[in-house]
C-alpha cells in the first residue's frame, strides 16, 4: 500500500480490521495518462477497497480524484482513451475486459453535475431508465422506483419533470437512479459541488444511509473534510496523480503538516488540537476529528 508504511497502526480503528472482509476493488500498479497528455493523471496506484467501506477521496482539483473514480466502472479505459497500464479489478472482473454498460450492474455512478445525468420527462421514468436497461419486468419496477425515491426523499414527485427540480433534488434523483439498479458499489464524484448548502447535507446524508443501511460500498470524492471525518471509514489522499496518504480518517487527518503542505485542510477541531500541541505544548494522544471527540479532548485537557 502506498501510504501505509508512513502511518502508525492504530488499535481498534484501523481499516486493517476490514481485511477480514472481501476486497471489492483492487488497483494494481495503475498508471494512466489521458490522450495527448505527457504527465500521467494517475501514477502507480495500488489500492484495495473492501466490501462495505465508506471511502473518501481527498485531493485538490486536478489531483486525479475523478480519473481514479472513472477507472472503477471502466469509463477509463473503455470510453475515455489514453495510456493505460496495470489492472483494475472490480469484484474480480478486469475493467479492461468489461464495458461500462456491463460494469453498471455492479457499480453505480453519480457525477458532479446533476443536469448532465438527467434525460427523461418525469422523475419516475428517470429512475426507470436503468431498470429498463437491466431488463427488470415492468410490474417489478414500481416498488423499486418507489423505494429508491423514498430513500433519497423524493417520493411524491414521480410525475414531476426532472428539470423542474432544485439542484439538490436533481442530484438526489441521480442518486436514486443509480440506487434503483442495486449496485454493490456506489461511486460519487463530488456530488455536492454544484448544489446549495441544504442540498449538500441532503446528499451527504443519503450517501451515509446507503452505506450504513443498505451496506453498499461507497466511494466519495469530496472537498468538505468535516463531512469526510464524520462519515468515512477509509480516506485516500491523492496529490498529482499519486496516493500520498491511505488510512482511517484518524490516521490521515493526524498528518496535519503534510496535508497543509499540499494545500488541503484538516477538520477545524483537528487543527485546533494541533495548534494547542504546537504552540502550547499540550499533549495530544489522538487528534480529534469530530465534534464529540473534540469535546472529550477539551474536557480531558482542561481538567488537568
Amino acid at each position: 500500500m502506498a501510504g501505509e508504511s508512513l502511518l502508525p497502526p492504530l488499535p481498534n480503528y484501523g481499516y486493517k480490521n476490514m481485511a477480514k472482509k472481501k476486497p471489492v476493488i483492487e488497483f494494481r500498479n495503475l498508471t494512466f495518462s489521458y490522450q495527448l497528455q505527457e504527465i500521467p493523471a494517475l501514477k502507480n496506484i495500488n489500492l484495495t477497497i473492501y466490501e462495505g467501506e465508506y471511502v473518501a477521496i481527498l485531493g485538490l482539483n486536478g489531483a486525479g480524484k475523478t480519473t481514479l473514480q472513472l477507472c472503477i466502472n471502466g469509463v477509463i479505459p473503455n470510453m475515455i482513451f489514453g495510456d493505460f497500464e496495470g489492472d483494475v479489478l472490480v469484484n474480480g472482473l478486469n475493467t479492461q475486459e468489461y464495458p461500462t454498460r456491463e460494469m453498471a450492474k455492479i457499480v453505480g455512478m453519480v457525477f458532479d453535475n446533476p443536469e448532465f445525468q438527467l434525460t427523461q420527462t418525469s422523475v419516475a421514468e428517470e429512475v426507470a431508465l436503468g431498470l429498463e436497461n437491466l431488463g427488470i419486468p415492468t410490474v417489478e419496477m414500481h416498488p423499486i422506483i418507489e423505494d429508491a425515491l423514498e430513500t433519497v426523499g423524493l417520493d411524491g414527485l414521480q410525475e414531476r419533470s426532472p428539470f423542474a427540480l432544485s439542484g439538490g433534488q436533481q442530484q438526489r434523483l441521480a442518486i436514486a437512479s443509480a440506487l434503483a439498479m442495486k449496485p454493490q458499489i456506489f461511486v460519487m464524484d463530488e456530488p455536492t459541488s454544484n448544489i446549495d448548502p441544504i442540498g449538500k447535507e441532503e446528499v451527504i446524508a443519503v450517501a451515509a444511509k446507503l452505506n450504513k443501511e443498505k451496506h453498499m460500498t461507497v466511494i466519495l470524492a469530496e472537498h468538505e473534510v468535516e463531512v469526510i471525518a464524520q462519515f468515512a471509514d477509509h480516506v485516500i489522499v491523492i496529490h498529482e496523480g499519486e496516493i500520498i496518504l491511505d488510512g482511517t480518517p484518524h490516521e490521515v487527518f493526524a498528518q496535519v503538516e503534510k496535508l497543509e503542505k499540499i494545500g488541503l485542510r484538516v477538520p477545524q477541531v483537528t487543527e485546533f488540537a494541533y495548534r494547542l500541541e504546537k504552540e502550547y505544548g499540550v499533549k495530544v494522544k489522538e487528534y480529534p476529528i469530530k465534534i464529540d471527540e473534540a469535546e472529550q479532548f477539551a474536557a480531558d485537557t482542561f481538567k488537568k
Binding site: 461500462t100 455512478m109 431488463g135
Partner: peptide, 21 residues
C-alpha cells in the same frame, strides 16, 4: 458527459430491455 452517465446506467447493455411505460 451524458453518454458516460448513460452507460453508467447500463444503457446499451446486453440482455432484454423492458419498458416502464
Amino acid at each position: 458527459q451524458l453518454s458516460i452517465s448513460l452507460e453508467s446506467r447500463a444503457f446499451g447493455s446486453t440482455g432484454n430491455k423492458t419498458s416502464y411505460r
